[in-house]
């Protein structure tokens, strides 16, 4: 299937990716080709088939809502690119 400029712009927006014009054209070409191949799935009749999202039958796994980990603020913040006063810093979001 062919991907339009509008579709690529929408995908990039949803995926939070910035693409320059050259990258956009390459992505259009690559993704169209991949989707064209993916379309071979349509040869298989699946009209009476229930979709499965897990290979082996999964059941819900429950546990008591008890905190088991300790305070790891310092360790977690140690990987943060920008931090201040024990918090993550992001650019200002409200004027």
């Amino acid at each position: 299937m062919d991907i339009s400029d509008k579709t690529i712009d929408n995908i990039a927006k949803l995926a939070k990716l910035f693409l320059n014009e050259e990258e956009k054209q390459k992505a259009k070409k690559d993704i169209s080709k991949i989707l064209g191949y993916i379309d071979t799935m349509n040869k298989l009749d699946t009209s009476d088939i229930e979709p499965v999202s897990q290979a082996l039958l999964a059941v819900n796994v429950f546990r008591e809502d008890i905190v088991t980990n300790g305070d790891s603020r310092k360790e977690l913040l140690s990987s943060a690119p920008v931090k201040k006063d024990g918090c993550f810093i992001v650019p200002k979001t409200v004027q």
């Binding site: 991907i3 579709t7 690529i8 929408n10 995908i11 990039a12 949803l14 995926a15 990716l17 992505a27 993704i31 991949i34 989707l35 993916i38 799935m41 349509n42 298989l44 699946t46 088939i49 229930e50 979709p51 499965v52 999202s53 290979a55």
Partner: peptide, 25 residues
């Protein structure tokens, strides 16, 4: 990008859900 596309509104059924059915087969 491929993943975002196959999950996006209008394409989910034809791609993602179809793939889950193929997986079942």
């Amino acid at each position: 990008m491929v993943g975002t596309f196959v999950l996006s509104s209008g394409y989910y059924e034809a791609y993602y859900n179809k793939a889950l059915k193929v997986r079942a087969v």
